[in-house]
Write a protein that binds this DNA or RNA. Structure first.
Length: 386
RNA sequence: GGGCAGGUAGCGUAGCGGCGAACGCAUCUGACUGUAAAUCAGGCACACAGAAACAACGAAGGUUCGAGUCCUUCCCUGCCCA
C-alpha cells in the first residue's frame, strides 16, 4: 500500500490503496461539497431528481456520496434562467453533496434521430417541444457553470458499439477537437457560486484499441482533475468493454480519478473496479428497479414474477437498507402488480443501497488486500437469477 | 304473457357473408447500462411438442361454394309494459 497527497487545480484525489494482483484501487476525492470515497457508484438524477427517491433517503439509507444531473435535460427544463436565479442546482434541488453533470454527449447518442453533428457542435431538436438548439463544447461548459456542478463533463460524441472503423476515426477526430475547445473555455472561466468546478475530458474510440490509446493520450495531456471513459456499454460485448478499459487505464494517469460513464450491471461494476476504475454511474438500479427488477447480493429478482406471491420473507434479510427488512417479497410483488408508486420507491432505494453497498464492500476488500479473491465470488453471486 | 336490446377466450367489448376471429383489461414471461423509459416486447382454451393436428362466436337446424355474420326454433340475460 502506498499513499500520495497531491493538490490539483480544483480537486484533491488521494490514492489510499491498490489491491495486490489487480488494478483495483481505493481513494478519496475531495470537492467543495464533500469527500467521496472511491470506488464509488453515482446515482443518476437526470433532471435534478433521482427518480422516486428523496434526498434524505439518498443520504441516510442509500448512502450516496455524489449524484448526477444532465446538462441537456436541465437546459431544456427548467432552463438556465431559473437555475441561475436559484443559485445553481445544489440550491435548486436541495442536495448539498457533490454533483456531477453529464454534458449532453450521451443525448447525442440516445436522441440521434433528433440531432445533426457539425464541426461547430451538435444541433438538437428538443424531445419536449421540437424546438431547435445548438450544443457547442464551449456552450456546454457555460451551461454547466450555471448549473454549478462540482464535476462538469466535456461534450463528446458517443458512437454506438457497432460503429465501423472509419466512422469511429471520424467521430474521434470531432470529439478530440471538442475536448480541446471545451477545455479552453473551462480554463478561461470560473465558477459562479463561490466554489470550484472540475472538467473531465472523455476518452472515446469505440472498440478499436489504437483509437482508444490515442484518445487516452490526448485526454491525459490535458491534465484535468479527473478523466472519463465513454462510449462503452453501448452495444458491444462485455468482454470487449473490459478490454477497452484495460487498454485505456494503462495510459490514463493513476493519480487522478477515472470515471467509467454509464456502467452498469453489478458484475460490470466489479470488473471495472478490478481494472482500475474509480467512479461509475448508471440508470440501471433506478430504471430497472421501477420496472420490477431487484439486484441483491444473492442474485437478481423480478418482483412481478408469480413465485413471490406468497413469499413473506423480507426483501433481503441481510440487505443494507431499511426497506430490505421492512417489506416482504410478497408485499413488494403486490405493490408492483397493483402499480403502486411505493413499489418504485422501495425498489429504487433498495437497488441504489445495494449498489452503494457493493462498491463499499469492494473498497473495503481493496484496502484489506483481498479484493482479487473476493471479486470473482461476488460476480458469481450477483449474476444469479432468483 | 307482450315489446325492445343482448348472448364472441377469465372479464369487457369489435366484427354484421371469406374469421382458425381484432382490441382493452386481467394474467404470465422477458428486456432495460453517461434516463424522450412508473417504459417496451412477447405468451395466454385444451392437448402435443416441431411444422402436422385439434381448438372461442348461447343451442339445434336451415340457406350458401363459404355463416359470429342471413333465416327458423329453442335456451339464457337486462330493461320496459302487462
Amino acid at each position: 500500500m502506498w499513499q500520495s497527497w497531491r493538490k490539483f487545480a480544483d480537486m484533491d484525489f488521494k490514492l489510499q490503496a491498490i489491491a495486490s494482483g489487480t488494478a483495483a484501487r481505493a481513494g478519496l476525492i475531495t470537492t467543495d461539497h464533500g469527500v467521496i470515497q472511491t470506488p464509488i457508484f453515482m446515482p443518476v438524477g437526470t433532471v435534478g431528481s433521482v427518480k422516486a427517491v428523496h434526498f434524505h433517503e439518498l443520504r441516510d439509507d442509500v448512502k450516496a456520496q455524489i449524484i448526477l444531473g444532465n446538462t441537456y435535460h436541465l437546459y431544456l427544463r427548467p432552463g438556465t434562467d431559473i437555475l441561475r436565479q436559484a443559485g445553481g442546482l445544489h440550491r435548486f434541488n436541495g442536495w448539498d453533496g457533490p454533483i456531477l453533470t453529464d454534458s449532453g454527449g450521451f443525448q447525442v447518442f440516445s436522441l440521434s434521430a433528433n440531432r445533426k453533428l457539425k464541426e461547430e457542435g451538435a444541433y438538437f431538436r428538443s424531445h419536449i417541444d421540437g424546438s431547435k438548439h445548438l450544443f457547442t463544447p464551449e456552450g456546454v461548459v457555460d451551461i454547466q457553470r450555471i448549473i454549478g456542478s462540482d464535476i462538469m463533463m466535456a461534450l463528446d460524441e458517443c458512437p454506438p458499439g457497432t460503429a465501423d472503423y472509419s466512422y469511429a476515426r471520424k467521430s474521434l477526430d470531432l470529439t478530440l477537437k471538442w475536448l480541446k475547445r471545451g477545455w479552453n473555455r473551462y480554463q478561461a472561466t470560473e465558477g459562479l457560486y463561490g466554489f470550484t468546478q472540475s472538467y473531465f475530458p472523455i476518452v472515446q474510440g469505440c472498440t478499436y484499441p489504437d483509437l482508444r490509446r490515442e484518445s487516452a493520450k490526448f485526454v491525459t495531456d490535458l491534465g484535468a482533475d479527473g478523466n472519463a471513459i465513454g462510449g462503452l456499454a453501448v452495444g458491444e460485448p462485455a468482454e470487449v468493454m473490459y478490454d477497452m478499459i484495460e487498454v485505456v487505464n494503462e495510459i490514463l494517469p493513476a493519480d487522478k480519478p477515472r470515471y467509467l460513464m454509464g456502467v452498469g450491471t453489478p458484475a460490470n461494476i466489479l470488473e471495472a473496479i478490478d481494472r482500475g476504475v474509480d467512479m461509475m454511474d448508471c440508470v440501471m438500479p433506478t430504471r430497472n428497479g421501477r420496472n420490477g427488477m431487484l439486484f441483491t447480493a444473492h442474485g437478481i429478482m423480478n418482483m412481478r414474477n408469480k413465485k413471490w406471491a406468497d413469499d413473506f420473507s423480507p426483501l433481503q434479510a441481510d440487505g443494507p437498507s431499511f426497506v430490505d427488512r421492512a417489506y416482504s417479497k410478497a408485499y413488494v410483488r403486490h405493490l408492483f402488480i397493483s402499480q403502486e408508486l411505493l413499489a418504485m420507491q422501495i425498489a429504487s432505494i433498495h437497488n441504489l443501497a445495494f449498489y452503494l453497498w457493493l462498491v463499499g464492500e469492494a473498497r473495503k476488500h481493496i484496502i484489506e488486500g483481498d479484493f482479487a479473491q473476493w471479486k470473482p465470488m461476488m460476480v458469481e453471486r450477483v449474476t444469479r437469477r432468483l
